[in-house]
C-alpha cells in the first residue's frame, strides 16, 4: 500500500465532502478497498474512516418497507428477521456471496461499490481502460471466462461481481445518497450501476462529494423468492451466472416475475421486458425460452465466456421450473 493518512469522518456529509478530493476514499469494511490497495490498483493518499458513523441500523419505513443503513454489514442484513421473512431473495443473495468472515465486515454501501474481479483490472502491469483510461482492454482478447456477455463495449467487458445488488435490483430497491451539503438524493438500484460504454472507470452513479447512506426496500411484494447462483465451487466463488427472482403464480399463470441477473454484465441486469413475457401466461418450456430470448437478445460472447449465454438460459429455466413446482 502507498502511504496514506487515516482520518475519521464525523458525519455523512463530512464524509461526502472529503470525497471531493480525488485521492480520498471512504473506508468502512475495507474488504474490497484494502484488497485493491495492496495491489496498488487503488492508491488513495487519504482514507476517511466512516465505519463508526450512525448508518448501521435497519429500520422500518413508514410505508412498510425497510431501510438498510449503508454501514449495516452483509451479515446483519442477511440475518435480520424481516429480511428473512419479507425479502428472502436478498438474504439468499447475500448468503451466497463471499464467506462469513467477509460478510461480517462488508457493508451495504461498500458492497454496492464493489469493483470488478477482472484479472486484468487487478494487475497494474496489464492494460485496462477501467484502471488506466486509454490503455486498452486486455480481457477482450485475453482470459475472459468470468466476463460479461451483455452490455459490453469495446472498452471493457468486466462484470459487476456482487450478489446483494442483484437481489436489490429484483426488489427495486432505492439507493440513498447524501451530498456534501447535507441534502439527499436517491437512485433506483436498477439505475445505480452503469454500463462501461466509453467510460468504464465510471461504475456507478455515485459522484465526488457524495456518500451512500442507505438502501430502502419497498413494502413487501410477497411471492416466492429465489436466488440461484452458478459457480465453479460449491461455495466461495464468484457467480458465472446468477438469477434473482420474485415470482407469483396464480391459477397456473405468472402474475409476478421480477428478474435480475448477475455475472452477465457490468451491472446487475434488469430488463422489465423479460418478466413481462411471462406475465399472464401459463408456464411451459417454450415460454421460459421466450423470456430467455429477451434476456439474451443482444448477448455477445468473447470466446471463453460464450457458455454464459446458454448457461443463463438454463439457469433461468431452472429457477422458473422450480417456481412452478413450488406453486403446484
Amino acid at each position: 500500500m502507498q502511504p496514506f493518512e487515516l482520518v475519521r469522518a464525523p458525519s455523512p456529509s463530512d464524509a461526502a465532502q472529503l470525497t471531493k478530493d480525488e485521492h480520498t476514499r471512504l473506508i468502512a469494511g475495507g474488504t474490497n478497498l484494502l484488497d485493491l490497495m495492496k495491489l496498488q490498483v487503488e492508491t488513495p493518499s487519504r482514507l476517511a474512516d466512516i465505519s463508526r458513523l450512525d448508518c448501521a441500523e435497519i429500520t422500518d419505513t413508514p410505508d412498510g418497507g425497510l431501510r438498510i443503513g449503508a454501514l449495516v454489514t452483509n451479515t446483519a442484513t442477511a440475518v435480520h428477521p424481516r429480511v428473512r421473512q419479507d425479502y428472502p431473495v436478498l438474504a439468499r443473495a447475500i448468503l451466497a456471496g463471499a464467506t462469513q468472515q467477509l460478510r461480517n465486515k462488508a457493508t451495504t454501501g461498500g458492497n454496492l461499490c464493489q469493483r470488478t474481479r477482472c484479472f486484468y483490472f487487478t494487475k497494474i502491469d496489464q492494460p485496462c481502460n477501467k484502471r488506466d483510461p486509454g490503455s486498452g482492454c486486455s480481457a477482450i482478447e485475453g482470459v475472459a471466462k468470468l466476463h460479461a456477455v451483455l452490455g459490453t463495449s469495446d472498452q471493457c467487458i468486466a462484470t459487476y461481481p456482487g450478489d446483494m445488488a442483484v437481489a436489490m435490483s429484483a426488489l427495486d430497491a432505492e439507493v440513498h445518497i447524501m451530498k456534501e451539503d447535507g441534502t439527499e438524493r436517491s437512485v433506483p438500484v436498477r439505475d445505480f450501476h452503469l454500463l462501461p460504454g466509453d467510460t468504464p472507470w465510471r461504475e456507478n452513479e455515485l459522484g465526488r462529494g457524495e456518500m451512500i447512506t442507505a438502501v430502502t426496500l419497498p413494502p413487501p411484494v410477497g411471492g416466492a423468492h429465489y436466488y440461484r447462483k452458478v459457480r465453479e465451487r460449491s461455495s466461495y466463488a464468484f457467480a458465472l451466472v446468477s438469477v434473482a427472482a420474485v415470482i407469483e403464480i396464480e391459477g397456473g399463470v405468472f402474475t409476478r416475475a421480477d428478474l435480475a441477473f448477475g455475472g452477465l454484465a457490468h451491472k446487475p441486469w434488469f430488463d422489465p421486458a423479460i418478466g413481462a413475457v411471462l406475465l399472464g401466461k401459463a408456464a411451459d418450456d417454450a415460454l421460459f425460452d421466450e423470456a430467455a430470448d429477451v434476456l439474451l437478445q443482444s448477448a455477445r460472447g468473447f470466446g471463453e465466456n460464450d457458455f454464459k449465454i446458454p448457461l443463463a438460459r438454463r439457469t433461468l429455466r431452472a429457477v422458473l421450473t422450480q417456481a412452478v413446482e413450488d406453486a403446484a
Binding site: 484479472f119 465453479e232 465451487r233 460449491s234 461455495s235 466461495y236
Partner: peptide, 11 residues
C-alpha cells in the same frame, strides 16, 4: 486463491 479454485469445505 479467489480465482484458482482449490476445493473448499463444501466441495
Amino acid at each position: 486463491l479467489a480465482e484458482y479454485h482449490v476445493p473448499v469445505h463444501r466441495d
